[in-house]
Write a protein that binds this DNA or RNA. Structure first.
Lengths: 196, 196
DNA sequence: CAATTATTCAAATGTTCGTTTGAATTTTAA
DNA sequence: TTAAAATTCAAACGAACATTTGAATAATTG
């Protein structure tokens, strides 16, 4: 029971840090800022975390691990490739909607990781992109997807979805489901009107 | 003739700053870093620029002004709305390919603008988004575009294209024209295979 | 209860930052 | 050539930063 308390404080530091980093950037956020938001003295925080760098590292790698785990799960499912791809796009939208701050940090502030972590993070990222790319390749070969350049398709999908983290909030006129469906429609059916 | 020299130095500071800000972020770039890259002492730079903030401001507003000017031009052309939209998407891709560093700064580091500039920048941004949104609205009403949520379409288009700045380089297997065409195909026709 | 351990924070450390100063040097123009 | 203006840079400024120290206080445990 008592063990938890330290854990909880640590997590609340991480959460607030993610929110602040998203808002003001890693470089623009001071430990004093953060401490104030969490409601402790800056020095006190160091009983729960070991450094500012560690916070960034934790946030980035937690998100990376979610993406990689989910990719592995979707990869081994027995469904058409286009459905795998759609599931992955939904995953991205969903994560941004539910873990917006953390995803934002992993997307935008990873470049402030220390040299070693930076290399490792880039590695994970490239690993994930390769997996996704393979799904696209297979989808094209199976005739489920248009024969467009694989890399362009990959990055366009990944990118198309990134605004969600900045814009979508629950109860702002559009539900998460509707959001996912609309984006999937645009990306897979196209924005141009089809003949009736 | 002599007037130009100061101008040229100033511009080379701006260019190198954009490259550095893109690479390490505004907060992660020091004036001493920048000075070294430009080949002068940090103090010397202050004869050409007035502050680090001014550099950021110049880069951000130069880009904003390009976008807004081009939007106005495309708006008044006499073409179908879907073509206007395509032209705007091409504009984004083109700018990222040719002015990658500056666009990256305007996209990612604008949040470090000082309070007043920040407000003005957000204003320009929202003005641009409103203009683009209107084109989408008209396109849907004219039956040229699928009837999807307007805001979702707007942000998906703007976002889908942003990876170009990070990834595309000339002579890396795909030409700028091919890149534009492929992205337009995905966004307007969809990635899913159509029946023959 | 006492003893141990965890938690707090005021104060200080050393570093890096953006920017200024002032004197020296180079360039320009008369 | 000489006076004025532009350009350079070593040195220094004060501010902000991440982090540590050490002593005080609170919570836990035997």
């Amino acid at each position: 029971m008592t063990k938890k308390k330290k854990e909880i404080r640590r997590e609340s530091i991480m959460e607030e840090a993610a929110r602040l980093f998203k808002q003001k950037g890693f470089g623009g956020t001071s430990m004093r800022d953060l401490a104030e938001r969490v409601g402790m003295d800056a020095a006190t925080m160091y009983h729960y975390i070991s450094s500012k760098d560690e916070i960034l590292k934790t946030i980035c790698f937690d998100i990376a691990s979610i993406y990689i785990t989910q990719l592995a799960e979707i990869e081994k499912a027995n469904t058409p490739f286009i459905d795998k791809l759609k599931a992955l796009v939904r995953l991205h939208i969903h994560l941004m909607a539910t873990k917006g701050a953390e995803v934002s940090v992993a997307n935008n502030d990873w470049k402030y990781l220390a040299t070693e972590s930076l290399a490792e993070f880039k590695d994970l990222r490239s690993q994930y992109e390769k997996g996704l790319s393979k799904v696209i390749e297979q989808g094209i070969q199976a005739g489920e997807l248009e024969e467009v350049n694989q890399s362009v398709a990959l990055f366009t999908l990944l990118s198309a979805v990134r605004w969600v983290e900045l814009w979508w909030r629950p109860n702002r006129g559009i539900s998460l489901e509707e959001l996912e469906d609309t984006i999937l429609t645009i990306l897979f059916n196209g924005l141009g009107k089809k003949e009736a």
